[in-house]
Design a protein around this nucleic acid. Sequence first.
DNA 1: TTTCTTGTTCTGACTGGTCAGTTCAAAAAA
DNA 2: TTTTTTGAACTGACCAGTCAGAACAAGAAA
Lengths: 192, 192
Amino acid sequence: MSKEKIIQAAIEVFSENGYHRASMDEIAARAQVAKGTLYYNFPGKSQLFKTVVKQGFEDIMRRTEADLNSPLPIKEMIMRTIRHHLDLFLESRHFSHIVFNEISNGIEQDVLEELKELKRTHIGFLAKIIEDGKCEENLFRDVDANLAAVSMIGTLESVCNYYLNHQEAYTREDLEQFVFTVITQGLFISVE
Amino acid sequence: MSKEKIIQAAIEVFSENGYHRASMDEIAARAQVAKGTLYYNFPGKSQLFKTVVKQGFEDIMRRTEADLNSPLPIKEMIMRTIRHHLDLFLESRHFSHIVFNEISNGIEQDVLEELKELKRTHIGFLAKIIEDGKCEENLFRDVDANLAAVSMIGTLESVCNYYLNHQEAYTREDLEQFVFTVITQGLFISVE
DNA sequence: TTTCTTGTTCTGACTGGTCAGTTCAAAAAA
DNA sequence: TTTTTTGAACTGACCAGTCAGAACAAGAAA
């Protein structure tokens, strides 16, 4: 079966080029498969893209969830969530950029809708972690959990991207610590 | 002179389609100008794109700077900076997405380098505001100012994007307040 | 065993279309 | 006169998607 080979190649090619610049010819070549096989296995480019993005979201959620099973203090849960997302972002910067940001333009309307749904699911996944923290330990500020989740993703994405262009200036541990601090405590030492 | 008309049209078309899907024919049509005129005024697509992005960065920095001239408490400076960036992001979501995110793939190497330089300048601009706050009022946590600037941009971008898909759920004031809180104080009420 | 049949998977040349960039003669400012 | 603009035609590259048929495995028939 070539399906798996195609998906792996598609991950590579979409990651390197983004959706529009990725060509089906290149994906076929990379998968060592004829172009027709792509269309035998997937209805078209946008469907293939959807499959790839879906796997990305599922992967990050599965990884994170597996590590939060046992009951943990909320601080530790947040730290682990950050760590898993950093892993994904640093492992495959381009891929995660695709997964988290290229869900916008020029993709068929129906596939676009499914992609947005996947994104909402992931935001909900993070929001739930935050929400649980709020209830169980009363440690969190009473902010909107969805917005909090979204700002967390934004921070992670943005900081990782910067880090990958300035690796000489920081260590991975610096990064982890910074993100944790800025997400949980913010910039100010005190505000009153 | 058609240059200004072309740039305005290019902003529109790039914003609506992203770099790759934007066509020079469409930009010419939108600017009510012959295609030849595009190539008379700009060497090519990527140079035109660079001009557009450059204006975007300059615009947001000029606007923000103009409003921070008088000496202000750092809280107020941060709030105003957030407000100006929200303005830009909400006014023209797609344009700012282009400016802040589409600086990655498939653009000629030399132009890409200039674009990255513009991005660094903008990060430096924000980092300086944060750095000043740290020195003058000793109110800020001692985090890396560049990373802090980057995480601020990430949060803003990500939150704005979410807001634009869920406008019914929040007001503009909610948003402003949320971003300010999460950037300055983080999620936790206390961490010791 | 050997030959025929069937369904699945795969192939790659081909089609129709898009687009950046070029060219140029002629017209319109300046 | 010089500079700028026009507009249309053209080139060459690229690309999504198609399709007639190849390849092959496995079962049925001879």
